[in-house]
């Protein structure tokens, strides 16, 4: 049912983090956003504010966005201290103005983490995630070499659980929400998705060691099991995957230490 107040326009005060680039200091600037429709999305509200700034000759607020349907993982505002803002299991683009009350002061900050330097205003550089991915977040299979798809049955519960992990949109809210700016949920989601599938077993040890190793090098914090990550995750990915990755990492470390090395490991030359 449509909320009773859903047609009443509202006005809010925005306190937005403005920062020209990573090297320069930033500060909060206040803007008034008036006569907003409650059916407007938060990003559409920013569009409207930006158009007004443009007409006034001011620099519009830079913010990251693309699909505006909660799946691409680009949008990344911290609204009133919570990555992606009020609401559970949604991205910034899925926040609607009906969530706010007339007269609210709304503070908008970027996702804050040393590994996500600010590019401008609310836009951050999250390429660290791509680096982690390139370290091991894959199953090596070149086009043309794949076996028949139904040749390898995957138990439905495993496939479903893998899918739970695979829904990660790579937005970085887990890092932004973690009090230690740790990337464990992101890495755990990828490691678990592939590690749960029979296809992913060949590279399972190598993957978890390489991805965690790269994560550590990139300046993310360490997990202290606050579970803020999974609460802020727009896809509500469970921190149980972190436990799973911890176990995987331990086992892989053991095996790496104990396994005899093949003389042919260098290519048999």
């Amino acid at each position: 049912m449509v909320a009773a107040n859903s047609t009443q326009p509202l006005s809010i005060t925005l306190r937005v983090w403005r920062q020209a680039d990573a090297r320069q200091p930033g500060k909060f600037v206040e803007y008034q956003a008036r006569e907003l429709s409650p059916d407007m999305s938060f990003l559409e509200m920013l569009d409207v504010v930006n158009d007004q700034l443009t007409v006034k000759g001011e620099d519009p607020i830079a913010f990251a966005h693309d699909c505006r349907e909660g799946i691409c993982g680009t949008c990344s505002c911290t609204i009133n201290g919570k990555p992606h803002g009020p609401g559970r299991g949604v991205a910034t683009c899925q926040i609607y103005m009906r969530t706010f009350r007339d007269g609210d002061v709304v503070t908008v900050e970027p996702f804050r983490a040393a590994a996500f330097p600010v590019v401008k205003d609310l836009v951050t550089d999250r390429s660290a995630f791509d680096k982690i991915q390139s370290a091991g977040g894959f199953i090596t299979v070149r086009a043309g070499s794949a076996p028949e798809a139904n040749g390898l049955p995957v138990p439905k519960p495993d496939a479903d659980l893998a899918m739970d992990a695979a829904t990660c949109i790579g937005c970085g809210a887990c890092v932004a929400a973690c009090k230690n700016a740790s990337a464990m949920l992101f890495v755990a989601a990828k490691v678990s998705h592939l590690g749960l599938m029979p296809q992913g077993q060949a590279e399972r040890d190598r993957r978890v060691l390489a991805m965690v190793g790269t994560m550590d090098e990139l300046g993310f914090g360490n997990c202290t099991n606050y579970y803020e990550c999974s609460a802020a995750c727009p896809k509500l990915i469970s921190h149980d995957f972190i436990a799973r990755m911890n176990g995987d990492y331990l086992k892989a470390s053991f095996r790496a230490a104990l396994k005899p090395e093949s003389a042919g490991a260098s290519g048999g030359v």
Binding site: P153, K156, A159, A162, M163
Partner: peptide, 13 residues
Amino acid sequence: IDQCVAQGVPFAR
């Protein structure tokens, strides 16, 4: 489909 399954795409089962 073969390629994507081999890559670990978690298709419905």
